[in-house]
Design a protein around this nucleic acid. Sequence first.
DNA 1: GTAATCCCTAGTAATTCGATAGGGTTAATG
DNA 2: CATTAACCCTATCGAATTACTAGGGATTAC
Lengths: 137, 137
Amino acid sequence: MLSKKTKYGLKALTYIARSERDSPVQVGEIAKSEKIPQKFLESILLTLRKSGFLGSKKGKHGGYYLIKETSEIKMADVLRVLEGPIAMVPCVSLNFYEKCDDCVDEYQCSVHKLMIQVRDNTLKVLRNNTLKDLAGK
Amino acid sequence: MLSKKTKYGLKALTYIARSERDSPVQVGEIAKSEKIPQKFLESILLTLRKSGFLGSKKGKHGGYYLIKETSEIKMADVLRVLEGPIAMVPCVSLNFYEKCDDCVDEYQCSVHKLMIQVRDNTLKVLRNNTLKDLAGK
DNA sequence: GTAATCCCTAGTAATTCGATAGGGTTAATG
DNA sequence: CATTAACCCTATCGAATTACTAGGGATTAC
């Protein structure tokens, strides 16, 4: 299940991408428009800023803005920051690999075999889709 | 993240599929061999039996056995029973559809758009893979 | 009748999630 | 230079979920 955090984050990014304007977009505006608890959204956007997806401007008339082309923002990267590993088990994760305690032979493990395929296909989708695709611009 | 329940369930099914024998396979044997807490595994196999994947025999020399051909057991079906919906958000679920509270227009929703694709690809894999494929027979 | 096995329900400890609280800091504005 | 509007940051907390555990009941082989 996708966490609310990720869901809200994606919606916010899309909102910012769709708002064609020079000035930054405020958290309050996004929260209201997308029906997201404002304080929660604040922390999510903070994370996205620290991860290099967003820039921010403080003080009055401040807000958040994209610092990359929408076509440069891959969903795989956003998901990794907000949701964590894309793989459903650590033993098939590219970026967060971890051996199973129980598993004797990874190569023989049926779960491994299946989840590798799921990961590959999910990754294909998440790498193909950029914020540009989602925002529809 | 895949739950332990599902992981254990898949491993157990694979174990049973790989054990070529006429007599049923005991929970204790599977638990020991696959390093799964036995009581936990008991409840998982019970679920799988009630869902029509396994048959059981009670009493001494009892245990569990497959009641379908391994090639007839699709991973998508097993996952739905053990893990729940395959979709990452209810609004793109085929079997457990639910509208988002917040979402005004599903068609415009970027999360929806992305998760439909993820679901389609995951489903493709899970429908293609049967227990036969996982067990490697 | 005894031991081995599945059947079933309840409970519980640990973790994660979703959100809130409560301010601190910075910048525009008149 | 005071006020206000915004982001910045940490801590905390209740609810839900997960991963088990406990404790026995029912059934069958021998």
